[in-house]
Simulated assay, not measured.
Amino acid sequence: METGKTQAVLKLLPFAVMAVVALIDFGTGPTAGLLPLLALGPAFASVACGLARTTVVGVIALLLGVALGLYNELGASRTTTTVAAILGVTVASVLASAGRLRHERQLADVRSVAEAAQRVLLRPVPRRAGPGIGVAVSYTSATAEARIGGDLYEVATTPHGVRIIVGDVQGKGLEAVETAAVVLGAFREAAYDEAKLQGVVSRLENALTRELSGEQFVTAVLAEITGGDSVTVLNCGHPPPMVLTADGEPWFAEPPEEALPLGMTTLKAVEPVPYQLPFEPGHQILFYTDGVVEARDGKGEFYPLASHAGLLADPDPQLALDALRADLLRHVGRPLADDAAMLLLRRRAAHPS
């Protein structure tokens, strides 16, 4: 809405500027020397107007220059000089407008490609992960104008249950996106093929070994829902999930043993150990990346996720997660320094009999 208003103002600005110059010149006479300022009309038009409107503004500026020059009796020499200046600015403005429009079309094409890449890389997750289990996701990229980055998530319904991954690739930019694509591709295959989460992790390790170089790595947390009152979790160096009980009390589910991130096979002395999280009726589990808990406000204070967990009270899981994301952005008060992804699981509360 605000962008539309700004564009409307910018499109009217050239006419307003020329009208002001003409009125002042008409009232004060030739001593003011304002006629060259009519060139501001086409100059401003090149910022927000198309080729046709910019050309029309330039023609109006030229006609006003000639008319006011005759009215003020400036003489042929001064009038010609003024008109030549306005004509030069008009030509430059039309060329600038053409370049701007070409750039906007290219940017629109890039955004279309980005949206297509987002649909492939971060596909919409199902709103349900089994009977009575709601799912919601949120992704905020730290890169200006980007829709995807180095954080990743996926929910896959497999013969072994509903399997979930939330991860964070070290680094940013296209390289991080490429690595995220490798992890997601390997997960989507392994989640269907492997009977245990440890097998899925091994497949991810093998895929990353072929792709990563140097000391790059990926932190990730995997989860498996097979029914019952618990969720199996396997944490590979990732921030622990936050569990909210039915009464809204939050706590962080630290893994029983520390495990290194994916891609650090040569240093791994201990394999990640699966552990169980309670997932009873009314419970919620929030998976997130470090861009959430490491987001700082203007005073350098981290986002207090646990103390703001009450924002997840909305009956609709997606609206609840959107409220938490909005609060995170308010806390930071500026673009995030790192990508921030969140995935919320909610088990519907049991109805009283």
Rank of each mutant, 00 (worst) to 15 (best):
M1Y: 03
E2T: 02
T3Q: 02
A8S: 11
V9I: 09
L10I: 03
L12G: 07
L13C: 05
L13R: 03
V20T: 10
V21Q: 05
I24Q: 02
P30N: 08
P30R: 14
T31L: 08
L34Y: 13
A39W: 06
G41I: 01
A43W: 06
F44G: 00
T54Q: 10
T54D: 10
G58H: 08
L63H: 12
G65Q: 04
L70D: 15
A76T: 14
I86E: 07
A92R: 02
A96H: 05
G99C: 04
G99L: 08
R100T: 01
L101Q: 14
L101A: 13
R105Y: 06
R105F: 04
Q106H: 14
L107T: 02
A108I: 03
V110D: 07
R111G: 08
A114S: 12
E115R: 15
A117I: 04
Q118G: 14
V120H: 08
V120E: 14
L121Y: 12
P124E: 14
R127L: 14
P131K: 08
V137Y: 03
S138M: 05
Y139G: 08
T140I: 09
A142H: 02
T143Q: 10
R147W: 09
T157D: 09
I164P: 06
I164M: 12
I164L: 15
I165H: 07
G167I: 04
V169F: 09
G173F: 11
G173L: 10
E178V: 06
A180E: 01
V182Q: 03
V183S: 00
V183P: 00
V183H: 00
R188P: 00
E189F: 10
E189M: 13
E189Q: 06
D193M: 05
K196I: 02
L197C: 07
E205Q: 12
E205K: 02
A207M: 00
T209C: 05
R210K: 06
R210H: 02
L212S: 03
S213M: 00
L222M: 09
I225M: 15
D229C: 02
C236R: 09
C236M: 10
H238T: 03
H238W: 11
P240A: 14
P240N: 13
F252W: 08
P255Q: 14
L260G: 05
G263K: 00
V270P: 00
E271H: 04
E271R: 09
Y275S: 03
E280Y: 13
F287D: 01
Y288C: 00
T289K: 01
G291K: 02
V292T: 01
V293D: 04
V293H: 02
R296Y: 10
R296N: 11
R296Q: 15
R296A: 12
G300C: 06
A306Y: 08
A306L: 13
H308K: 12
A309M: 13
L311C: 01
A313C: 05
D316R: 04
A323S: 15
V332Y: 09
R334M: 07
L336T: 00
M342H: 10
L344R: 03
L345D: 03
L345Y: 05
R347Y: 14
A349G: 15
A349N: 08
S353G: 10
